[in-house]
Design a binder for these strands. Structure first.
Lengths: 323, 323
DNA sequence: ATGAAAGCGCTAACAT
DNA sequence: ATGTTAGCGCTTTCAT
């Protein structure tokens, strides 16, 4: 790897001039040309590492998400990317797999690589953002807002969404509405379950027999659905708190010949790939991409020095019947 | 951000000693302890940037993929991650969106950030890996092997898979078997189409009316399927060359009431989320995760200095009837 | 076992 | 407009 020194020597100028050429500073056309030629000749690429060390900051932002296999998060990632790229930043994705160790490691990297900022959908439980915050590394939380930390957040109203979805089931006349939600240490999971509880209370099914904490993944949804159906008095409807679990739940319902409309189903989040045969399901649409673009915009503001108090932006999620 | 100098001062030792403590070199227990305490006190994190600059290499590897929203690539990513992590490396994902500019940018970053290596599923056309290769940055291609570059590659036999899938359709008695494949500048797309051609030749349908180049995405599959069905003499079966497009194609078939078994369908790649209602489809299983783990292992070997000639590993993809 | 010091490649004063 | 130089934070000889 050639350095600016070698390019400088080849072009007959000083290293500073080479640097200036690559950073758009004032350089006479002839020298600039000479530098560019020499650089091309040697196929010189400026070292980002050295630049980052010198500048104490880079143009890459980290996007930390708990499950890269969930289409919701990949759609969100696309949103982040588009906005970030347009502003000249690159995005690197870090998959934590809902695991705190991995998460911590990535945050550590972001910090010690002096990345420009991080957008994080926190793994379950209390994520430790204190390091980032202490070092004033711009952070914005997305989808899930970490407990007790004062950072920008872009979220949806999980409780209201859960309530609306469940309410739709109530209005459809179902009597025993179950709830399959995510891990109990993930905020969005409990909030959506709270929404469910809001709606079923007074409807006779406050009963926690009908509440299942799963893992936000396909198999977890399937297992929970099986358990519910095995109950002495099985539910006649179910509110599923995320997209992936709904795939599992529907699969089980299908196997047992109890697909909607035989069973009522409402889902928080969009089905990743619509079922081929139209099935009447209630869906709370998640503005995944929009969450991403919004978070990226907030982060960019922070990066450029915006110092106002932390903001929380709540995006609307729309209730739509599907099928 | 405290530096080793400040930690050294606080602990009453030299910077070199601090460095040694953090790198497992020989240091007396007392001093080591003092250093650790001071470091914790100041919540010191060694600068990876400085370390990378000094060492001229880091412990992160870049995984460059063309479509982060495709479950095939995310599964592959999981495979890479698991192997890399176990060896102490972190993986950052770079989404190129099948776009050469983005790809080039990420490769440039990998290089100028002196990453340990890169695993790449190249965007369509000829990816330029020359920079990486010239600088001896370890590279392994996965899923798609870039043209005319001599690098390790982990792939599947696309042509054989396409042939087998189509052959299954032939054996099921279909007469006019169409093919929906990916972009014509993506190797895997043309190879799978070649496999289709192998199988339909002699079956009367070599006719390119039945061949469609789409974009490897859901909508592309849907559009292509619509076009095919609008033909004067529409096909009675279709071989779809990737997972996402099959979702689109099946959707269109469903809308027109022509779902299998009315129409024959064979797919290269696993349906991301199986249809609820069992539908008889032939699937060429893609060992996505395995592609990832294998690529990661090859890369790790190269990183540790393995200098043998480039290898190409062809993984088996298994034909399975589904539904 | 420990310290002093050079240097990884770059940028930004400061000088000219 | 251009060159000189110090220094970003770390690792690693080379001494001791």
């Amino acid at each position: 790897m050639p350095t600016i020194y070698e390019v400088a020597a080849a072009a007959g100028v000083s290293p500073a001039t080479v640097s200036r050429v690559f950073n758009g500073a004032n350089v006479s056309p002839e020298k600039a040309e000479a530098v560019r030629r020499a650089a091309k000749e040697m196929s010189f690429t400026p070292s980002r590492t050295a630049r980052t060390l010198r500048l104490q900051s880079s143009e890459v932002i980290a996007l930390v998400i708990p499950d890269i296999e969930n289409p919701f998060f990949t759609a969100l990632a696309r949103g982040v990317e588009d906005v970030a790229r347009a502003a000249g930043y690159s995005v690197v994705l870090c998959n934590t797999d809902e695991d705190h160790e991995k998460e911590l490691r990535y945050l550590d990297i972001a910090l010690s690589a002096t990345m420009a900022g991080v957008i994080i959908a926190a793994a379950g439980g209390n994520s430790d953002l204190s390091g980032l915050i202490a070092r004033k590394c711009p952070v914005v939380a997305v989808d899930r807002s970490p407990h007790g930390v004062d950072v920008d957040a872009v979220i949806v109203d999980n409780r209201a969404g859960g309530r609306a979805a469940t309410q739709a089931l109530v209005e459809q006349g179902f009597q025993r509405i179950a709830c399959i939600t995510g891990p109990s240490d993930v905020e969005t999971a409990t909030q959506r379950a709270d929404g469910w509880r809001d709606a079923v209370t007074g409807n006779g099914t406050t009963d926690d027999r009908y509440l299942r904490f799963a893992d936000f993944r396909v198999d977890g949804g399937a297992t929970a659905m099986s358990e519910l159906l095995a109950l002495p008095e099985p539910p006649d409807a179910v509110f599923v708190a995320n997209n992936l679990m709904s795939v599992g739940a529907l699969r089980v319902l299908s196997e047992q010949g109890k697909l909607p409309p035989a069973t009522g189903v409402a889902v928080f989040g969009d089905l990743p790939f619509l079922p081929l045969v139209p099935i009447p399901i209630t869906v709370v649409h998640m503005p995944a991409r929009h969450l991403g673009t919004t978070a990226a915009k907030l982060l960019l503001e922070r990066i450029s020095g915006d110092d106002q108090p932390a903001r929380t932006i709540v995006l609307r999620n729309q209730l739509t019947p599907v099928g």
